[in-house]
């Protein structure tokens, strides 16, 4: 059976792109898939250099790969996972994809003409846009889940487990490089009364507003987390006790100085803060404990103030107990 007639209809209906180049990288053939998407006429581009027709392909890289195919007579490949596309071609998912161009898998295959001497290269282009779109969606979902796994649902600051994990890392870093590190714990004053007066939604609104306000006072490297109901912690890398106390004073003043608003009501709130600086050999729990003790002292001394931990705090606490 003579099957030569198969070739043309097959190549033109194939749902993959076929380009054939000669050894000088001139176009010998392109199939309908490529011609329609690149909006060129096969007879217009025949004999022209690949790089003159497709001017925006990565020339240096592609040339080197094609040289390899010719010199070694082995196939070469390019995957959309490493290089999203070689040719800027439109795809058929314009609405569901955030990419303008067709993601491509490309095989570069060595061909030898029947004369046994003339070398050619066939570029086979497969549309991988669907796989690309699924992967993008998957990555977005994973990123969203990671974020949700780290943050507190109400306030959007770090949740306790992630925050505490970060504190351990920062302590290790401070220990290793002998850099200063401070911890600041703060608590909304009389939160129970706020809740009783404005309802739990009102209390929640104050927590959200509080976190938003504190965030504006911190550096990018400082880490704010929700430690418990109305108690929060701030990790202050590269900060000694004096610097941490300045931050604490700033937060104290900012919270008390400006009332918050909830459903046309004005809510006055204040915070008490405790500050402790990391000392070599200290554990995560011990550092939190010190900041907590200082916070407790601030509460006892009348709230709406910041207190730095000192060894005497400890003595004082023991006495009053």
């Amino acid at each position: 059976m003579q099957l030569d007639w198969l070739l043309q209809p097959l190549l033109s209906q194939l749902n993959s792109g076929v380009l054939v180049l000669d050894a000088e990288l001139r176009l010998v053939f392109i199939n309908q898939f490529i011609a329609r998407r690149a909006d060129v006429q096969p007879e217009d581009v025949q004999g022209k250099s690949l790089f003159d027709v497709f001017t925006d392909v990565p020339q240096a890289w592609l040339q080197r790969k094609l040289q390899g195919v010719l010199a070694l007579q082995v196939p070469a490949f390019s995957s959309w996972e490493q290089r999203q596309y070689i040719f800027k071609l439109p795809h058929l998912r314009p609405l569901s994809s955030d990419s303008q161009y067709m993601a491509q898998n490309c095989s570069m295959l060595p061909l030898t003409a029947p004369d046994g001497v003339s070398r050619y290269i066939c570029l086979l282009i497969e549309d991988a846009t669907d796989a690309y779109v699924y992967q993008q969606q998957l990555q977005q979902s994973v990123a969203r889940l990671q974020l949700a796994n780290r943050t507190d649902g109400l306030t959007g600051v770090l949740n306790r487990s992630y925050w505490q994990q970060q504190l351990s890392y920062e302590i290790q870093r401070a220990e290793r490089y002998q850099h200063p590190l401070s911890l600041l714990m703060f608590d909304l004053d009389k939160f129970k009364q706020l809740n009783d007066r404005y309802g739990h939604l009102g209390g929640d609104a104050v927590l959200v507003a509080l976190c938003a306000r504190v965030t504006t006072l911190l550096r990018d490297t400082d880490l704010l987390g929700r430690y418990g109901g109305e108690e929060f912690g701030v990790i202050l890398p590269e900060t000694d006790l004096t610097g941490a106390m300045q931050v604490a004073q700033r937060i104290c003043t900012a919270v008390a100085g400006q009332p918050m608003h909830y459903e046309q009501q004005t809510i006055r709130a204040s915070v008490s803060l405790g500050v402790a600086a990391f000392t070599a050999g200290q554990s995560t729990d011990a550092l939190i404990q010190q900041a907590d003790e200082a916070l407790y002292t601030a509460k006892r001394q009348g709230r709406n103030q910041a207190v730095a931990w000192r060894a005497v705090n400890n003595e004082y606490l023991k006495k009053v107990k």
Partner: peptide
């Protein structure tokens, strides 16, 4: 990318 170079050299 590193990934692309690794696949390229492996292929060759």
């Amino acid at each position: 990318s590193e990934a692309e170079m690794l696949t390229d050299i492996s292929s060759v």
